[in-house]
Amino acid sequence: MAAALLTSLLTVSPALARPANLDRSLDRVSDHGLYRVRIQSTRTPIPLWRVHQWNVRLTDAGGQPISGAVVAVDGGMPDHRHGLPTAPRAAATGAAGDYVIKGLKFSMPGWWVLKLAVKGPDGRTDTVTFNLVL
C-alpha cells in the first residue's frame, strides 16, 4: 500500500538549481493543508554515510495527533538527479501522532529533499517536502 501511495503522489523531478531562499523548516503544513508534520533526526548533527532514524510528529490542521496513518518516504538530491541510497520506511511508535523513519541514509553532503506522503485513517492523502542541506 505504501508503494502505491508513493507512486501515485510522488514523482522524481528533474534536476533543479537550489533556490536562494530554500525553506529548511523541519515543521511544515502539508501541501493541501490537511496535516502538520514535524521531523527530527535522532542524531545531531545529521550523519552522512550512516543509516539512522528520524522522528515524525503528525497532527491534523488543528494540532490533534493522528494515529493510524500510513506514511511513505521518498527523497533524493535534486541537484544530482538521484534518489535516496536506501529504502527508508516509516512506522507508528505507539504514541498518538508519533512515527519513526528507519533506514534513512544520506550518501554525500549537499541539498537533499525528504518527501513524505501521508494517508490518514480517513483515507485522505497529502504530501509534504522537507529541504535539508548537509
Rank of each mutant, 00 (worst) to 15 (best):
A2H: 01
A2M: 03
A3H: 00
A3T: 04
L5I: 15
S8D: 11
L9W: 05
L9Y: 03
L10W: 02
L10G: 02
T11K: 07
V12Y: 13
S13Q: 07
A15E: 06
A17E: 11
R18A: 11
R18T: 12
A20G: 00
L22A: 15
D23L: 14
S25K: 15
S25D: 10
S25P: 03
S25M: 13
D27T: 14
R28W: 06
S30Y: 02
S30C: 10
S30V: 01
H32I: 02
H32S: 08
H32N: 07
L34V: 14
L34A: 15
L34F: 15
Y35Q: 06
Y35A: 13
V37W: 04
I39A: 06
T42W: 04
R43E: 13
R43N: 08
R43W: 07
T44A: 05
P45S: 09
I46A: 00
P47R: 12
W49E: 11
H52K: 08
W54L: 11
W54G: 02
W54F: 05
V56I: 07
V56S: 00
V56G: 06
R57F: 08
R57C: 11
L58C: 11
T59A: 05
D60G: 11
G62C: 08
G63F: 15
Q64W: 00
P65V: 08
S67T: 03
G68L: 00
G68V: 10
A69H: 05
V71G: 01
A72V: 08
A72K: 01
V73P: 13
D74K: 06
D74F: 02
G76C: 04
G76F: 09
M77C: 07
M77H: 15
P78A: 05
P78N: 14
D79E: 15
D79C: 14
H82T: 09
L84M: 03
L84E: 05
T86R: 08
A87F: 15
R89I: 15
A91Y: 09
A91L: 10
T93C: 13
A96V: 10
A96P: 15
D98P: 03
D98C: 12
D98S: 01
I101E: 04
I101P: 03
I101T: 04
K102Q: 13
G103V: 07
K105A: 12
K105R: 02
K105T: 05
F106W: 15
F106Q: 12
P109W: 14
P109A: 11
W112M: 04
W112T: 02
W112F: 09
W112D: 05
L114W: 00
L116I: 12
A117S: 06
G123L: 07
G123E: 12
R124Q: 02
T125E: 14
T125Y: 01
D126F: 00
T127R: 10
T127A: 10
V128F: 10
F130N: 11
F130H: 09
N131A: 15
V133M: 04
V133F: 02
L134C: 12
